[in-house]
Design a binder for these strands. Sequence first.
RNA 1: GCACCUGUAGCUCAGUGGAAAGAGCAUCGGACUUCUAAUCCGACGGUCGCAGGUUCGAAUCCUGCCAGGUGCGCCA
Length: 577
Amino acid sequence: MADPQEILAARVQSALGAALGAEFAETDPVIRPSQFADYQANAALALAKRIGRAPRDVAADIVAQLDVDDLCREVEISGPGFINLTLRDDWIAAQAQALLSDPRAGVPQQDPETVAIDYSAPNVAKEMHVGHLRTTVVGDALARVLEALGHRVVRQNHIGDWGTPFGMLIEHLLDAGEDSPEAELVKTDPNAFYQAAREKFDDSAEFAARARKRVVDLQAGDPETLRLWQELVDLSKVYFNRIYAKLDVTLTDSDLAGESTYNAMLPGICEELERTGIAEISEGALCVFLEGFTGREGRPVPLIVRKSDGGYGYGTTDLATVKYRVEQLGARRLLYVIGAPQSLHLRMVWQTARKAGWLPEGVDPVHVQIGNVLGSDGKILRTRSGKPIRLMELLDEAVERATTVVADNRPDLDEATRASIARDVGIGAVKYADLSVSHDTEYVFDYDRMLALTGNTGPYLQYAAARIRSIFRKGGVDPASAEGPVVLTEPAERELALALLGFGPAVAAVGATLEPHRLCSYLFDLAQAFTAFFEQCPVLQAADPAVRESRFALIAATLQTLVAGLDLLGVRAPEQM
RNA sequence: GCACCUGUAGCUCAGUGGAAAGAGCAUCGGACUUCUAAUCCGACGGUCGCAGGUUCGAAUCCUGCCAGGUGCGCCA
């Protein structure tokens, strides 16, 4: 609604049509933020070449037709033909004030689309690692953002709940006893359970034989085996939900759509692929060979849909997810928030699905590639002993470190309040660190940096919000009662108000690009604009009551935006810090 | 060998074909009698991996090369 860039684009575009002819009325006016003004329009330079005239003359013709008196204070042609646009203070003020009464805080309502998001996807009876952490946090932020934009989001937690390991896991569960402390480990330390099963499998031929038989029983649908399998899944759900609760992730049991969900579809998928000639038997396995996919020594890379032993692999279940999400869920966008190394696999799955007709024109699958999380040594994050780090311990350590910092700085607060702040800050820091860099690149995990109160961190944004709340508390004013009117005089006021207008566009950009770090960058800029304002513009001590009211309105809008933005990222904003 | 990703300040990272490439950290120098100094301001810091090409204009697009990472048939 109040996106200056969009409004200016429309105005400049109609000026283009008026100045240069109707055939230019659709031309992109190329509005960009400017270091010399608020915005600049760069269209004249590109058009000058096309119509064979001097760029500055073209710019002058555009400006002559440009009707922006109601929103621009200054329009200036500069350099080789840039059109610099400076907004009117009263226009910015009115827009910022309008945000206060907008329940959407400027976030646009888009045409609803059904979007399936595949994210998190931990394995039953296995520890979640930092890679799962990142897909969980990024996927959840995307789900929140797309919902905020008005879309119907269907979360799909594709947990690993099927396959050969369940033979040994079930036998180990039986050996240990279903209600034993060993079984309880699945809820708290699943890797300990898994490793124990693995060791027995490796050491005991008798156990291994039982495990293999158990896999056959599982696939055959033996009721008692299925009951034990369900037992393991249920124990794991307890573990997943503990992690999700700690992380403030929106996933629930109703979002679970694990591999086993698709079992019934798999034979039909293979049959159809074979019947249509898309798949063929090779070395005993049913494979799809696609053009352009070659591996070592130029050999074609297969997508194996049925193994030579008759079993199904993840290629088949992934094909089933496409079919299910398109046909049953009616999804028009399929998001796979999955590790970057799976890129080749996914492209093969999608191309196969296209050939088979399961992925119609107009339905776009997107791989939101998640880069690895590295330790300070530049290698994949592990403990000193080389084992993967337990996610719960990692989160606890973040909270613990935050606890120390809060205790040092806020001895005046009672322990329960400090603990609550430490939780919000510690967890927020970890999540924000995952979100604030491009999701597809690797990044270096560093507690000290993510917990810092300076720089582009979660705590810095939380602190900005806490300072605003502190002002309202101290002034005995309810942020909801701040109405303005907003009047801009100080440069820091203007900067802050202008920054506020960028929230809706930033959220829309995340929805379009699926890059949550853009929202982080925006919120960091906003927090910096607020901090500058905080230093220069007293609110409670403002001599003029009108200035005081205006500043209350500005910081109320800032608070609303920061809290809404952090919420879209899944990060809490504590009352005080 | 093939494919994908990455290469930007000492470090961690942004950067929509537009003007003189940005931020944070670190370093150095400043600012608390004033709404939270867990903050802020200033300075320093660059052959945007290399070489070509396209363009009025390239960190951005194309080609080649170099370096690092990842993946490449029955685990998922």
